[in-house]
Design a binder for these strands. Sequence first.
DNA 1: TTGTATGCGTTATCAT
DNA 2: ATGATAACGCATACAA
Lengths: 347, 347
Amino acid sequence: MKRPTQADVARLAGVSRATVSYVLNNQTGGGVPISEETRQRVLDAIAELDYVPDARAQALRSGNTKTIGLIIPDIHNPHFWEMADGVEQEANAAGYHILLSSIPPENKSAEDIFRNLSHRRIDGLVMVPSFIYHSEEAQKTLAALLKRRVPVVGMMSDQAEVSYKFDRVISDYREITVDVMSHLLSLQHRRIGFVFGIAVPDLGSDRLLAYRKSLQAANLPVDLNLIVQCGPTIEDSYQATKQLLELPSRPTALLVINDYLAIGALRAIKDSNLDVPQDISLFGYDDIPLAKYLVPRLSTASKDGEKMGREATRLLLARLEDPDRPPQEIRLPARLILRESTGPAPF
Amino acid sequence: MKRPTQADVARLAGVSRATVSYVLNNQTGGGVPISEETRQRVLDAIAELDYVPDARAQALRSGNTKTIGLIIPDIHNPHFWEMADGVEQEANAAGYHILLSSIPPENKSAEDIFRNLSHRRIDGLVMVPSFIYHSEEAQKTLAALLKRRVPVVGMMSDQAEVSYKFDRVISDYREITVDVMSHLLSLQHRRIGFVFGIAVPDLGSDRLLAYRKSLQAANLPVDLNLIVQCGPTIEDSYQATKQLLELPSRPTALLVINDYLAIGALRAIKDSNLDVPQDISLFGYDDIPLAKYLVPRLSTASKDGEKMGREATRLLLARLEDPDRPPQEIRLPARLILRESTGPAPF
DNA sequence: TTGTATGCGTTATCAT
DNA sequence: ATGATAACGCATACAA
């Protein structure tokens, strides 16, 4: 049972193919004239055959796919789904669909993802440009995309040194980390550890840099033993935290690169028979939905990923309308959320 | 700067369009003869122009999109990403891409999703057919898909009464729930609550039915106050659990429909100044990756979503090869995982 | 070994 | 108000 085509509908309705197309595309009764009677006949035929137009043919003919590519660094981190959520909502509302890609460590490279998006002829791209740092190759591919004038929006931190011009939603944890550190310092914490677990190191540099700067501003040493770099899985942060806790003089507070990894840190602390926040304070980033249900509720800094996604998509849609407008930049603030996982330093 | 087409490549290489196509599709050196020198010229031209074939045209021409639709009920539950992971791995290995849709409560209906998949002319569909219960309309659309002989695989529980014929990966928590209940009963629990929070009630009926049956088999009453139905968010389960704990005679053990919601239950228990498992035992389902990092580590039953996804995709790919083979059925067992959240009943 | 011609399903331009 | 026809980019049967 083959799928019905426009021609089948036309035959059944006793009209030409073009008429079917007219009925389909000018439903709202615009500038193209179709007699009400013909319209109804066509509609009936469509319903009877259960005809659905072929997106491939439409896309080929019209030149656009009504599809937006979305690249995020880590599918397992809820923070990035929030972004994806925002992008999808906004895109759907405008009649666009999302093609989601994440960058798994080895599985498929940024290259493959770009090639696929290119292959599929997406109309535009929203990305967290972490892969930029992965490879020269990826940068070249991105440059090629931009040269082809494919609209691109980046959701990124401020200091990222990307030379290409594209729209950006800028939001990072640099400033808020200064606040986090002041807060911890005011609670008399002096040994503050950092669990730096992330797929792409450069992605977290906003936090790391501000952490070091705050320490220095307070005339405290930057003890490299207190900074543990690890991978992006919970198990990674679990191990990294264990390592920190086994230090001769262990930290009294811990910054974890994101809430998702803070789950592993929390577990590691408990496994060392320590309590949060009595023995050690814990701080995360992102305010993922489950952060406030953890035991103890997690103190964190929030970036509102969903809003980032929505704003990024707005920028993209606007550029789709007007490809020639100058590159835009939207800045979104981060918020400090104090909950139960932070308290005064023990003594 | 327009994208280069096959014709551009042909022109630059000084050959015909067909030759370019040959070079592209018979790379492995199959049955079509191309002189090595020509081949190289074409390859050079492709590289120079950075030519990427247009998937839309290829799909239109070849009749297939190399795309598999995937429908899951709730994008926020990590269990379903595990499934998605499995599907994607297996599909990618075979050169297919995934078009992921989830069924949000109100946002978009199963109807819309089906129409979109139909529109995009996916080659096949892997689904958790929860939406079946949503609407008559959805069932009709699925039937229509099957009538068009679009390969479909369902990942579902056993008793689901779907009359249509399609391949299935069958796995449910019916039997394992009997084990869970025996375990709890052997620990002297007599009042066992059930937090039944799920987007589509029928999705969890395997657990609920087995729960009731176990109770009856042990000559215990089925107290409807102990079964709280709620929505699929953590906040929902938090509220539902609170409600259970405020009962005049509160349960000493709690079954939560899935690990994701168990996070909210855990929080609610703590907020009532109760401890797990000393005051109340907690059991989840799915063994999501973070379950074993919770405090306490969560006892749970596991279905191996990733394997379900992989097996389902294998079935689909096999049917793509041979559309006429009889409907297959693969059964996957569930496992009991005892961790820290369960213990003897208090007195 | 390579080139020519045709059609996939759609939409848009031009006639009628 | 409606119909014929030409592209969109690609793959393939067939001719050379």
